[in-house]
Simulated assay, not measured.
Amino acid sequence: MLKKIAEDCWKIRRLTGSIGAEILGVDMRQCNAKSAAALLDLLDEHGVIFLRGQSKDPGDLADFAALFGPMLPAHPMKPGLPGLPAILGNETGRVSDSDVQCRDIHNRQGTNWHVDCTFMPRLPALSLLQAAVVPPHGGDTLFADLRGAYDALSAPLRRLASELHCRHDARKLYPEWLRDDADPELRDKLLRTEPVTHPLVLEDARTGRRSLLLNPNCITGIVGLSQLESDTLLSLLTTHTLIPERTVRWRWTEGDIAIWSNPRLLHNYVLDHGAAERRIYRAMVDHSA
């Protein structure tokens, strides 16, 4: 069902009963500060929004992302594109057999359920993806709603989660960078990145709504709990979050744009496209957006 909104005659097509909406009638190259404010309001409601048929030029992505607030570097430890230091080029094609081997219950070798860059002291507020090259089949991206997961917890678990803090460590995400044959520069950057602590429950500054902050690829434990207690509670919360009713799956076409509230959503990319090429660009926007 399509719902009209005032901004430039856009229309909203909800994708599930919980999160995700496609916004029709938007041209990101024609957007301005007013358009960005309207899109942020839609993000507050839907968590993640999608724009089809947009430009594939990463320079246009940079200009569009800058409408939402100060842009962050492409990645804390990886370079951006030449001339576009805030844009990360993700060449994620040519899936190998080892990529789909399980590393743990929520992660595989090549990808995983995650929130972007929680191993940094300051979390990105927004993440944006731009599909430049997509495989003929597969390579979808999944999103799961951490706000809905928090709301659906029993009252005792909400109270407990709201009192806890988690350790986030980039070394859990990039263990291969610590091998003897790894790039020395990457290894040094990783070793200099100290673990950080974030609350297990965050409050959104715009809406006042609360959400879990889960990141299976970075969290090493909950402060003050034993490893068994920590692993058991985190597994329960993650499994609770990843039920189908709290997820949406996006099938990419070239030029699609995805925008989401980074702390509110887990996301994951499906490694089912074999040797086909896949190129996705990413931008991140700071908290003050």
Results as ranks from 00 to 15, higher is better:
residue 240 H to P: 09
residue 109 Q to I: 11
residue 70 P to R: 13
residue 40 L to H: 05
residue 161 A to W: 01
residue 31 C to E: 02
residue 191 L to D: 02
residue 4 K to C: 11
residue 269 Y to W: 05
residue 142 L to Y: 03
residue 122 R to T: 14
residue 12 I to Q: 05
residue 90 N to Q: 12
residue 117 C to N: 05
residue 187 R to M: 01
residue 120 M to I: 12
residue 40 L to K: 15
residue 89 G to H: 08
residue 120 M to K: 06
residue 228 L to N: 13
residue 193 T to E: 07
residue 112 N to C: 13
residue 65 A to S: 10
residue 130 Q to V: 08
residue 111 T to Q: 04
residue 273 H to L: 06
residue 242 L to M: 11
residue 50 F to H: 03
residue 14 R to Y: 07
residue 125 A to I: 01
residue 34 K to H: 15
residue 227 Q to C: 12
residue 262 N to M: 04
residue 208 G to L: 08
residue 164 L to H: 05
residue 205 A to I: 06
residue 92 T to Q: 11
residue 84 L to D: 14
residue 285 V to I: 14
residue 272 D to Y: 04
residue 47 G to S: 07
residue 285 V to K: 04
residue 232 T to D: 14
residue 103 R to A: 11
residue 254 E to D: 11
residue 254 E to G: 09
residue 223 V to K: 12
residue 197 T to C: 10
residue 19 I to G: 03
residue 39 L to T: 02
residue 131 A to G: 05
residue 8 D to R: 15
residue 104 D to C: 10
residue 222 I to T: 09
residue 195 P to S: 06
residue 238 T to V: 13
residue 236 L to G: 11
residue 283 A to S: 15
residue 120 M to V: 12
residue 282 R to G: 04
residue 92 T to I: 14
residue 177 W to N: 07
residue 53 G to N: 15
residue 59 G to R: 09
residue 69 G to P: 06
residue 249 R to C: 05
residue 249 R to L: 04
residue 41 D to P: 07
residue 6 A to T: 10
residue 279 R to S: 08
residue 250 W to Y: 15
residue 288 S to L: 12
residue 186 L to S: 04
residue 215 N to T: 14
residue 38 A to Q: 13
residue 14 R to S: 12
residue 113 W to N: 04
residue 262 N to T: 10
residue 54 Q to N: 11
residue 10 W to I: 13
residue 140 D to M: 09
residue 244 P to E: 12
residue 208 G to K: 08
residue 251 R to N: 09
residue 32 N to G: 15
residue 5 I to S: 05
residue 8 D to K: 15
residue 228 L to W: 13
residue 38 A to W: 03
residue 120 M to F: 09
residue 251 R to M: 09
residue 68 F to W: 03
residue 241 T to W: 00
residue 65 A to W: 05
residue 137 H to S: 13
residue 141 T to W: 01
residue 216 P to G: 02
residue 155 A to S: 12
residue 37 A to D: 14
residue 217 N to P: 00
residue 90 N to E: 11
residue 168 H to W: 00
residue 59 G to A: 15
residue 248 V to L: 01
residue 151 D to I: 09
residue 284 M to W: 02
residue 209 R to L: 10
residue 133 V to I: 14
residue 24 L to E: 15
residue 56 K to W: 00
residue 188 D to W: 00
